[in-house]
């Protein structure tokens, strides 16, 4: 099989003029070698003018064509670069958005204490000072006044005896009254 393959091309190379594959194709030889295709009438009369018009048009558009070609050449890369930039930006924003407290703390750490104190004093106007003064002056109203009752409610037997002694009250008088 391999030997046969080697022989055939050799034969064709050395016998260029005489060897003809058509000799072994009787059916093919019966078919006339005419051109079965046709073209519209006058086609070849107009074709050179059409081609010349296109060539002239092509020459006029040459710079823009080059620009468009360059744009098309880099278009996929541009799209890819923009995609990468959008993805990187979204990742960055997401990471920053997840730690705002860290961000404010880090900013505050850079402010000196003196500046912070000055800022608090300057902003004291926002506190209602008169309300604070009223609270201080009317402290009695705020605090509980019925202290003896409280003492009695919570007092033990020793404290009652001391009260009776201090006020010269006789226990038998109390029994009589009861």
């Amino acid at each position: 099989m391999t030997g046969k393959r080697n022989i055939e091309p050799e034969k064709s190379n050395t016998d260029t003029d005489r060897w003809n594959p058509l000799d072994d194709a009787p059916l093919l030889r019966t078919i006339p070698k005419s051109n079965p295709f046709t073209v519209p009438e006058g086609y070849f009369d107009n074709l050179p003018s059409q081609i010349m018009a296109q060539c002239r048009e092509n020459t006029k558009r040459m710079p823009s064509v080059n620009y468009n070609r360059a744009f098309l050449l880099f278009k996929p890369q541009s799209i890819f670069a923009v995609l990468i930039a959008v993805i990187a930006l979204s990742v960055y924003l997401r990471r920053e958005g997840n730690k705002p407290l860290e961000k404010y703390e880090s900013i505050a750490a850079t402010i000196p204490d003196s500046v912070l104190m000055a800022s608090v004093q300057n902003n004291i106007a926002y506190v209602d000072v008169s309300a604070l003064e009223n609270m201080v002056n009317n402290q009695d109203e705020v605090l509980p006044v019925n202290i003896p009752d409280a003492d009695i409610q919570d007092s033990s037997g020793g404290q009652i005896i001391n009260y009776l002694i201090n006020n010269n009250i006789d226990a038998s008088d109390i029994e009589k009254e009861l």
Binding site: L28, T30, I31, P32, S34, P36, F37, T38, V39, P40
Partner: peptide, 11 residues
């Protein structure tokens, strides 16, 4: 735009 007969079509 093809004027060939059946045999030419076959070819």
């Amino acid at each position: 735009y093809f004027k060939g007969d059946e045999v030419e079509k076959k070819l």
